[in-house]
Nucleic acid binder design. Structure first.
Lengths: 230, 230
DNA sequence: ACAAAAGTGTTGCAGATACACCCATGA
DNA sequence: TCATGGGTGTATCTGCAACACTTTTGT
């Protein structure tokens, strides 16, 4: 036997975060779920995902299955963790490589909401199929402990944004208010966003400067162009 | 088709770090390599690893294949990343879940060094089979950017250790010298190590206090008993 | 007594927080 | 002119790096 085992299936799942208003109008972290149609956990809600095909990369599989099930097309997926307990899927052995991404609100709107796709508040999202509850908790913990200005700006906001918008994003993610003055200085010191020279007019107040994110990103996985300490 | 694909193989590899003296006597980060006997990359050096069996968890597979190839048995494996480029193994599609661990010197000595197992300095370790060069670089980057007092103490040192020993470990990992006074304060402030009350006698100098690591560890992956911000 | 390493104190710098204050706009 | 949020200045606090200094052992 040159390759002693065959019967392990490789799947991908995706945890997609967006900032949407909940019933009370507060902006909170949400994620899309899909209803399962087949039997392990039939009819229950689960993370978007599917099988990895022979010739596609893991992240491509994540992108493809996400698009197929929800219509979402995030630009950048980050690998989160690989789950492989032998009993995590009844009947067959499945190893799931889980990816995570952030999407802008108008991209989130592209999701084909309906009978089988639904956005849920990430904090009270429970009772999912398989070990997906655990996966969501871990993804949320990672989001909150590793927020970076440029990263969040680039993926939750449009190309140009005001610092107030960026602050709003951080406040929604971290669930606490931040001092505008100190937030501004931190962002400026980080060097990861830069002024565009433009201003946002139209509000009933002084028009804010607009910024854009700088940095190619690739922060949290192999293939970094130039990692820290390198 | 209930499960559309079958032909992806799941493997594990392990990057094991130990602090060993190099030819010049300097303590440096080393890792064990095994010589491949079969053909993709036959005779070349590679990370220890093997196929995941049907009924074992991914980390158990890591433990087992590491023991089979090298004789090493680290207590705690941490998942590093999952590599799955379609072309990373010639001929067949292989997804490799990579784990990392730290071992004490006397544990490292348990490795069956010989014709087919060799410890190498991690920094000038190149020309490995598959994409293993890339994996080693990433593991090393993670080790150096995420050094934590308790974590390193627990896995590189014996149960009781002096702060000088702990400092020596950090200096070897980070490849620079550290101020003893500041190091002591940082460690004490971290609260992750605690005095045992004992002292180390026998050196030709003032006997240092001995410490031991506190904390259940489980720091960098799901299944944390109580993660930050929880 | 001396060497060597353990351990303590002190100072200066850098970044973060808190908060007072001024600025520009729409209504 | 006032309400609203944009934007600046500044005192204070906190943590860390640097380094001088004292203490305790073995020889």
């Amino acid at each position: 036997m040159s390759t002693s085992q065959q019967a392990i299936l490789v799947a991908v799942s995706t945890v997609i975060f967006a900032l949407l208003p909940d019933r009370r109008g507060d902006v909170r972290v949400h994620l899309p779920l899909v209803r399962r149609t087949r039997d392990p956990y039939g009819d229950q809600w689960a993370l978007p995902g599917g099988w990895v095909r022979q010739e596609e990369s893991l992240s491509d599989a994540g992108r493809r299955t996400l698009a197929e099930t929800t219509g979402l097309r995030p630009s950048y997926l980050e690998q989160l963790y690989t789950f492989g307990r032998p009993d995590r899927s009844p009947g067959q052995r499945v190893v799931s490589v889980v990816y995570s991404a952030l999407v802008r609100n108008h991209e989130a709107a592209a999701a084909v909401e309906g009978e089988n796709v639904r956005w849920t508040s990430a904090d009270d999202c429970t009772g999912l199929a398989f070990d997906h509850d655990e996966i969501v908790q871990y993804a949320l913990w990672r989001l909150r402990t590793k927020v970076q200005f440029a990263h969040v700006a680039q993926h939750f906001l449009d190309e140009r944004f005001s610092l107030a918008q960026l602050r709003g994003v951080h406040e929604a993610v971290l669930q606490r208010s931040l001092d505008p003055a100190n937030f501004r200085r931190q962002v400026e010191a980080s060097g990861t966003v830069v002024e565009t020279g433009e201003r946002q007019t139209g509000g009933r107040h002084r028009p804010p400067k607009l910024y854009r994110a700088v940095v190619p990103d690739g922060s949290a996985g192999p293939l970094r162009t130039a990692g820290p300490l390198a």
